[in-house]
Simulated assay, not measured.
Amino acid sequence: MSEQAIASDRRAVPGDSEFDRDTAVSRREPGVYDIDLRAGWTIGNAVNGGYLLAVLGRALADALPHSDPFTVSAHYLTASRPGPAVVRTETVRTGRTLSTGQASLYQRDEHGDEVERLRVLASYGDLDALPDDVRTTATPPALPPMDQCFGPQDGPTPVAGGSAITGRLMLKLDPATLGWALGAPSGKGEMRSWFGLADGRDADPLSLLLAVDALPPTAFELGLSGWVPTVELTVHVRHRPAPGPLRVSITTRNLAGGFLEEDAEVWDSSDRLVAQSRQLARVRLGRPANRP
């Protein structure tokens, strides 16, 4: 979706967007939630890990007395598929400023047995209650203007590993990190992009859980094209994002033993670092370049 479309009067708002509808959970009973995982958030056949994190994040926001995720750590146990799922939550501790809970997502396999797909431990609080004291040496990524960057729709052929989720997002990738799409990866393990939701909805703390896992894998710029499934992902939400597109920067400094780490930073339109993450992913060569 173009930046002109995002700026249109028809842009969605939080609570009334595709992201909100597709991450909405229905409380069956205290601590138990039902959801139908949507096929629009898949990469290949698997549901994107950032979308799943937002689903569990929304369930925990309902279950805990605080509504904003501060830190969320997820272990991806088996690949999730579109269709019915159950989220079970448990309150671990509640305090004045922070509450901690855990959540797991389950689906039925082909035999009808319940399988745990994802397990999360998270602490929630009130981002608006934090002191406005910032001391950082971090700097925003130097991205070219959006009209000089490229998204999946700009290529002459479908991007390797592209899938349904690209229609839900506004991605404009830095040309300096797009060598893999031209058959000439840089070898640097970097990915940078402007980021937003395709319907123009501004970011909030829950959508930051999606943003950290929505770009193409840095493995592509390392010259790898295999499936890169997430093993573990930890996200720290640092501030409520200002309106406008986000900038996401992801780097990998070490690939060893078939695993790599990805460190992500998310910056808002006011040049504030609003989220950070680190994930461990497995590199599998010789398979389609998809990542749940």
Rank of each mutant, 00 (worst) to 15 (best):
D147F: 08
D147I: 07
Q148W: 15
Q148D: 15
C149K: 11
C149A: 13
P152A: 08
Q153F: 06
D154I: 04
D154N: 10
G155C: 01
G155W: 01
G155I: 01
P156G: 12
P156Y: 00
P156D: 12
T157R: 13
T157D: 14
P158T: 04
V159F: 04
A160L: 13
G161D: 04
G162D: 03
S163M: 01
S163I: 02
A164C: 03
I165G: 03
T166R: 11
G167C: 01
G167P: 01
G167K: 00
L169I: 05
M170H: 10
K172S: 14
K172H: 10
K172C: 07
L173M: 14
L173H: 13
L173N: 11
L173K: 04
L173Q: 13
A176C: 03
A176E: 12
T177N: 03
T177M: 04
L178T: 12
W180G: 05
L182E: 00
L182N: 00
L182V: 00
L182W: 01
G183N: 02
A184M: 01
A184V: 06
A184C: 00
P185H: 09
P185R: 01
P185V: 06
S186G: 12
G187P: 10
G187C: 07
K188I: 09
E190R: 15
E190Y: 06
E190D: 13
M191G: 04
M191F: 03
R192F: 10
R192T: 11
S193Q: 02
W194I: 15
W194D: 08
F195Q: 09
G196S: 09
L197A: 11
L197W: 12
L197T: 11
L197G: 15
A198I: 08
D199W: 08
D199R: 13
D199E: 05
A203W: 08
A203M: 11
D204Y: 11
D204I: 09
P205G: 11
L206D: 07
L206F: 04
S207A: 12
S207E: 02
L209W: 13
L210H: 10
A211K: 09
V212P: 10
V212C: 15
D213P: 10
D213V: 11
D213T: 11
